[in-house]
Design a protein around this nucleic acid. Sequence first.
DNA 1: ACGCGAGTTGATTGATCGTTCAAACAACAC
DNA 2: GTGTTGTTTGAACGATCAATCAACTCGCGT
Lengths: 200, 200
Amino acid sequence: MVGQSTREKIIQAAMELFWLKGYNSTSVADLLSRTQLNSGSLYHVFPSKQDVLIGVLEAYRDGIGQMLLEPAWGQVDDPIEKIFALLAYYRVGIVETDHTYGCPIGSLALELHEPDPAVRELLVQNFNAWIGAVRGCLDAAGDRLPAGIDREALAEFVLTTMEGGVMQARTYRDVGYFDRGVAQLRTYFDHLQERARVGA
Amino acid sequence: MVGQSTREKIIQAAMELFWLKGYNSTSVADLLSRTQLNSGSLYHVFPSKQDVLIGVLEAYRDGIGQMLLEPAWGQVDDPIEKIFALLAYYRVGIVETDHTYGCPIGSLALELHEPDPAVRELLVQNFNAWIGAVRGCLDAAGDRLPAGIDREALAEFVLTTMEGGVMQARTYRDVGYFDRGVAQLRTYFDHLQERARVGA
DNA sequence: ACGCGAGTTGATTGATCGTTCAAACAACAC
DNA sequence: GTGTTGTTTGAACGATCAATCAACTCGCGT
């Protein structure tokens, strides 16, 4: 981690600060003091604050494997358990942040009310990557799920469960809200697998 | 609607602006120009901008019946259909706002990263009121749902489905994401009702 | 007519916002 | 040593932010 470029330093600081404080509440001055850089250096690399945001969203998109899936999945092999391992990984985030955790992408998606098209497109790409990863698990589950099922929609529903659970856990400062949501999803998955087994 | 008090004017404008632009991105100047008031009048009624937010959250909390439940439920009687009618009402919001709709409470819950205790408490009360309304429907559904089921958790899960669906529909600018989430929830409810019917 | 207090006016404050840019600096080529 | 190119410095800019307050208006009781 030696010889980190100016760009990398800023992206790294911005990922943390946008996550902790949000985009609007993070000032350029915050980024500068965190990175020990001067404003000129930042604006030499990024034309504007929004371009920092774009860099951050690209980093999340490109790093979903290394930053999220690999640590979440460890040595979990079963495709359906991978989905719940992913949710369990978010649970760790909630607990470790004293129940202030917010999904970095979800929070930005709700905070930015009139996002630039480039920003919105990157939010979409981030959601797509997440849904795609879950979708891959569902595909790998093969005939353990009912044949005619809409796997894409089910993957979206897993994202919904995560985002809704994170939002409530944070508002209530209580992981229980996340856990109970995941438990509902588990019941739903059990039902789907049972339906596939009896071939309904 | 004649003789509206200064306080009511501000709350009304703030409800709309916080919803459209978010709390941080709405300036006091925005509120003043919308209400045609001067800053002194606002600060005569509210000690600070945050107190306007508190007033807004109280208005949502106290108005959930008139503003949300009554219009959503119309003449729907069936308790389970009331739940889906509530979700259908949010769908109208999504479509009518050209897919930029965000739940006023959910958006604030994610935007405010270090909320004042009073603000957080009001977010909790708003979620409680919403969950409580759904919970009431589930209770009214009686033995159409499995006996041992955690109705509170199921009500929370309905909120999760709404918030997650709204977030995705807005990000993708596509109601389909909301619709498919609701469809998953419907499948889940069908399963629960079937389980209650056969008495599993 | 007069006084009183609730409510309003709007210019002004100091802080902070994102952004700029002339000047200085560093590394390499010739 | 001299020129060139890419990078960094940090004071400064205008805009905007939430908030203030002395002065003023106006309805009402007496």
